[in-house]
Each structure stands twice: as structure tokens, then as C-alpha cells.
Design a protein around this nucleic acid. Sequence first.
DNA 1: AACTTTTTCCTAATGTTATTAGTTTTAACT
DNA 2: AGTTAAAACTAATAACATTAGGAAAAAGTT
Lengths: 199, 199
Amino acid sequence: MASQREKNREYMLQKILDTARAIMRESGVAALSMHELARRLEIRPPSLYNYFSGLMDIYDAVFRLGFNLWGEHVLDYTKDAQTWQEEIRLSMEAYMLFAIKNPELYQLCFERPVPAFVPSEESLNISRGHLEDFYSHIASLENVIKTDLPPEQVADLVIAIAHGLTALHMSNEPNLPLGQGRFGVLIPAALSVLDKAWS
Amino acid sequence: MASQREKNREYMLQKILDTARAIMRESGVAALSMHELARRLEIRPPSLYNYFSGLMDIYDAVFRLGFNLWGEHVLDYTKDAQTWQEEIRLSMEAYMLFAIKNPELYQLCFERPVPAFVPSEESLNISRGHLEDFYSHIASLENVIKTDLPPEQVADLVIAIAHGLTALHMSNEPNLPLGQGRFGVLIPAALSVLDKAWS
DNA sequence: AACTTTTTCCTAATGTTATTAGTTTTAACT
DNA sequence: AGTTAAAACTAATAACATTAGGAAAAAGTT
């Protein structure tokens, strides 16, 4: 029983976030501005303050959206893993694939392209939650991965490799699909190294 | 036989770059502004245009400075390596150490904290030169590293791991010294994995 | 030491941005 | 149809980069 007013508000909020993402994707995450946003929505900049408390609040909403999509994406992409090698390969692929498919969300969530934007505590908690999930996922593989490293370090090392490969892929050949390009091609190489070391 | 005018100019150029680095270090790379710079130098903002063509030109000069220092730093830090393992360990340590000691240069040179800043061709060529150096360095180890990967991929994988560990160290615990913290501690772990895989 | 010239610095102005205050319009609810 | 709350507007402020044009200063020259 959402009132008409609530429905209108929801609709406008959605429209603002969609437009914000479009601007970030077209012109870079940092190109988002209240003026450009208002221009595309055919309203005056101050009207946006009826929906968000400021530009950073819009970034924060997109940040939260990004991590929610990220959570679903990883869960779905890694769901059929049978071995720890597959688990780690799919995790790395999921990371890079998310960046390729949603460059604006990847940049905002995993890099720091807008220095003035600092995610709110609430938003950070969402991202921390996903990290915890990954930690316990790796912890459940403790007995099958043959290494002296504690499971948190195994997880952190995997995260670091995935992040390194993805960051360099995105800054060199962001348009090449998964598995292609100077760094995109290296996920199997990284996995083979881990496999040889931990089997 | 530098004239007085040339000496004055050199002195002021140096003072501007030093102050720019101080601002970036204190308040973040993106906090650099002509106004703040002029404020600290006790001049009016337009006067800065006698020395640089604009804010982005100042970023470019610091970028170039950063890569020049980076080149010297790596050369010096890795000079005593005896084995390929040591070579790679020192390379990774050099990367993270440079970031810890010069966070403002690391961010500007290896991340993209100021989206409006795009390094000039001249500056990019300097950075490309250092990459080439690293490539040929790794290529010279081709016969001692036991892997099917071509040397460029070995180098890229090492770069990606070093970058991933460093980026995450800097966004989590930038003040902890080399070898400490969640990601700072992982260089030996990464090296052990590579050693087991490629020995 | 006086003169000339170039460099350096300044003031004033333009256009961009985020944001706030206060008011009017719109449209939902009664 | 009337009431009211939401959502839009205009106007204004303050920070910023940058340009134009002129004043001041310091170097180079006689």
C-alpha cells in the first residue's frame, strides 16, 4: 500500500541513480556533477536536494548499489565450484568480470577515483560484510588447501592478486573481455602458480 | 653560467613543486589547488601561471618527478639481488616501500586519484621506459625461472601481485612499515608461492 | 649610477561548481 | 473543491581555474 507520493519518489530516486551511473560510465566516475545530472533530468540543480543531501550522498547511494550487485554477482558466479582451485579461479574471474561489466561501479567501489567521496559507515558495513563472507568461504577450504598460511592470509592473497590483475586490466585494456589482454590473460597463470604451491 | 634570472626561476619552480607535494601529502593528492598553493607561497593564484600552464601541468611535473625518483629507487633497492627469488622479492618490496615513503607520488603515478589529470605523452614515455627496463630484467632470468610462461607474462604477474598487495596495503594501513599489516605481511607469502611454483 | 627591458606579480573579471534560503507551483490527499 | 505537503523554482554565496591587461620589481646594460 505505497501511496502515490511514495511511488513518485521511488521512481525519481531510481531515475536519478540511473542517470548518475550513465554519466559516470560515459565520462568517468568523477565527471558526475549536480549540474550535469540536473541538465539530463531537465530540472534545476537545487531540486536534486529534495532527494539527496548532496553530491557525495549520491555517490554513496551508487556505492551501496554497487556492493549489493557485487554480492549477488559473486554468489551466482561461484555457485558451481567443486574444488578449491575452481573456487579461487571463479572468485578471481568474478572480480574481473564485474569490473568489465560495470566499470563505473568497480571504480567507485574498489578504487578511489573521487577523493572527496568517503563512503558512509553504513555503506562500509555492507562492503565489510562481503569480505567476511569471502573469509569464511576460504576458511571452509582450510583442510584441502595445503599451506601453512592461516585462511585469512590465503583469502587476502587471493584478493590482492585478483585486485592487481583487475586494476591493471582496467587501466590498460578495459574494453577487452574476460581472458583477453595483457593482464586479463593472466588469471590461469596465477591459478597455476597457486595450484602448484598449495596442492 | 646560469644567469640570476634563471637561478631565481629554478628556485621558484622547486619551491612550487615542494609545496605542491606537501599539500598532496597532507590533504590528499586531489586537494591540490592553485588557491591553496598560492596561499602557502604568499602570492596570488594568477602568478603561478608564470611557472606552469595550469593545475594539470603541475600534476604532470610531479608525476614526472615521481617516476624519476621511482626509477632511482628501484635500481638502488634491487642492486644486490643474487637469485631470481631475491630479484622478485626486492622488486615487490621496492614497490611497496616507495608507496609507503612517498604516498603522494605513489598515488599520482600508480593510481588515478585525480581523474581530470591525464599524464602527457612525454611523462608517459618515462613510465614506459621503466616498464621496459623491468621486462628486460626479467627476460634475463628466463633460463633460471622454471615456467612455461613467456618472460613478459612473468613480469606482468609479478607487477600485478606487487600492485595488488601495495594498493590494498595503502588503502588499509598506509602508515604501517614494510612487512607489517594485513597486506604488508604477505610479500613473503606471495614469494613462497612463486618459489614453489617456479623452482 | 642611471636607463632599459624583461620578468614577475597584481587586480579585475568570467565562467564553472556545490550548496542554502526562501518562495511559488504542483499535485496528492481529504 | 479545498487543504496541505511535496517538489519545483529563483536568487544568492562561496570556492575554484583561468584569462586579460597593467603595475611593480628586479635583472641586464650602458
